[in-house]
Design a protein around this nucleic acid. Structure first.
Lengths: 349, 349
DNA sequence: TTGAAAGCGATACCAT
DNA sequence: ATGGTATCGCTTTCAA
């Protein structure tokens, strides 16, 4: 058998039942508010539970219910400020709803599937994918086990996964309008090689938004950073000769880190925003608000993303068959120094 | 009873046993490499398991073993770059050792205890506290349930919790030496009101280190930011008249965010490092390396902190009775622009 | 309302 | 080496 716990033996529902003078069943019902229990029994159970310091064994509970109070979260490179902000919001939302977060870090898109598998082994109540693209087959496995999967800011992975996504189109449009209103006549889209899906979508949307603004395609240049992050943006600015002398250039970046790196590198070259060019980033991470950057940026409402993602899980748990949805979340343009708010002054005359 | 799964019924060890023509017991042994199994049986079990796509139910496994493959992590404000870096390292280390991370975010020191309780309900294999101070009583509860608890960068919470801690004394000494060698004659210690334990220790150690360097106490001033973070540092610099005209001031900050905010605010006032003052931060977060800051800083080896924390859990699981330890992790001075490396030139003459 | 009992799925002991 | 079986702790059905 098992070695008896030499210290404090675990308190079980059985112990509570004994002390309260009722059966395990009553204890279970009383404590989980399921089924009917007389007020007196309930009181006695609660008293006994408190007295013994009883705590439900979630493993046993989950085993029986075939579902744990766990929600799986997949994330990559938590050191990226936007990701940590998002995960922070997710943790809050998850706990606010009475769940616990099971977090796995992936270093490679491939690992997403493995993470999902491990989540199912814990019978999680749902999965939130914030990085990586899970193979449709594995998502289906989850669905078959009645485990809803939702992605944040990613492409739909087949017809089984819901997605909550910041409105990249609107963001690109806001950026394009702002840059045009600010008088830019030449444009650059900055992204990195092997960008995420969201980054690519933003680029496409920016191109489209410029067209809508009446900008001819030849006035948009694409700049590929050799890598992601601050360093990528920094290098991108070094390795290219950006500015046409005649026209103010408006630059839109796939994310905040790229924008910060780009800006620093440009400054090192003696060029600054908004005098020499305009710059708008995506994400509105804390650093973009710092005095040294004051970056105009597209703000993502992370709390909203998190909340909608969890709502989505709940909904899908109820209606497993319903078609997968894409739920948009509004974005906002935050005016800061690298492309200041344009007042109506041009219309004054 | 339970509603039968309408889709794919869960594959259990029983199913594998049936297909392999052996008993559940053999399946368990074969798959967990426990007990003895004939090579042939093993092969058949493995084949059957693969064929059926069998996955162990961790809930059942944990219930039986009285221990899950979970490790609890307590963290606050994940948006702080140092915290997210540390948690990132912890996640990697946890997964590298075959565990899964159960993460709880606390917004208040008080919640630490509640988090630990919930961890025990999942029969976690260990707990890592990176924020907050768990009440000694609850830590003891954990220990009594054979759940080791380790803190990172915090005070020992009674005799039951091990602690892994960056060497704040050494860090302060490195900072003091550097500032002195750079010619500073007047010093400021910048921290925020209600600082963490680590911050306070660094302050004390800095004071001591200056004494060792032969600096009289009256040349050290303490500056209290009204809050933590970038904003706190920014405000601290605004609300105080820092520099004596005669002597170069050396400033040491409790953390990186304070330092960045402080630096930006000083610049706004027309003062910059290292010309007008010297500045050294703690943590070496990614942003301190950015071109706009290039902050000289004390580097914490997060991977080392994470690795030692997990080693510690393992050790304590083996020896529950052993006295609690404090395990130091070395820090390094990273020379950057706000207090550049001092060459031997002063000795040349 | 209540309690007895049948699981949930896996593990480890013990006898074979 | 193998299989039967008790057990981990809780939930839920079912009959009383």
């Amino acid at each position: 058998m098992k070695a008896p716990n030499p210290n404090k033996p675990t308190v079980t529902a059985q112990d509570v039942a004994r002390l309260a003078g009722v059966s395990r069943a009553v204890v279970s019902r009383a404590l989980s508010n399921n089924g009917s229990v007389s007020p007196q029994s309930r009181a006695r159970v609660e008293a006994a539970a408190r007295q013994l310091g009883y705590q439900v064994n979630f493993l046993a509970q989950g085993l029986n219910r075939q579902r744990s109070q766990l929600i799986g979260v997949v994330v990559a490179r938590l050191t990226d400020p936007f990701r940590s902000t998002l995960v922070n919001a997710l943790l809050s939302a998850i706990q606010a709803r009475g769940y616990q977060a099971l977090v796995t870090e992936i270093t490679d898109e491939q690992e997403t599937g493995l993470s999902l598998r491990r989540f199912t082994q814990f019978r999680v109540s749902g999965v939130v994918v914030t990085s990586g693209q899970p193979p449709e087959s594995i998502v289906r496995e989850c669905i078959e086990h009645h485990i809803p999967v939702v992605g944040i800011n990613r492409a739909q992975s087949g017809p089984s996964m819901d997605v909550v996504c910041s409105d990249n189109q609107a963001g690109a449009m806001l950026a394009a309008s702002q840059l045009c209103a600010a008088g830019c006549q030449s444009f650059i889209w900055l992204n990195y090689q092997g960008s995420t899906w969201a980054g690519r979508v933003r680029g496409e949307a920016f191109r489209h938004a410029l067209t809508v603004q009446g900008i001819a395609p030849e006035y948009l240049r694409e700049l590929q950073a050799p890598q992601d992050g601050y360093e990528g943006g920094f290098l991108a600015a070094q390795h290219s000769n950006l500015l046409r002398p005649q026209a103010t250039t408006g630059i839109f970046c796939a994310n905040a880190l790229l924008a910060c790196g780009f800006l620093d590198s440009m400054r090192q070259q003696g060029k600054n925003a908004p005098t020499d060019f305009h710059l708008i980033g995506f994400d509105n991470t804390p650093q973009t608000a710092w005095e040294s950057y004051q970056l105009t940026t597209i703000h993502q409402q992370v709390d909203e993303l998190a909340a909608k993602a969890l709502d989505c899980l709940r909904e899908r748990a109820r209606h497993p068959e319903r078609a997968a949805q894409v739920i948009p979340v509004a974005v906002e343009l935050v005016h800061r120094r690298t492309s200041p708010c344009v007042t109506e002054q041009t219309d004054t005359l």
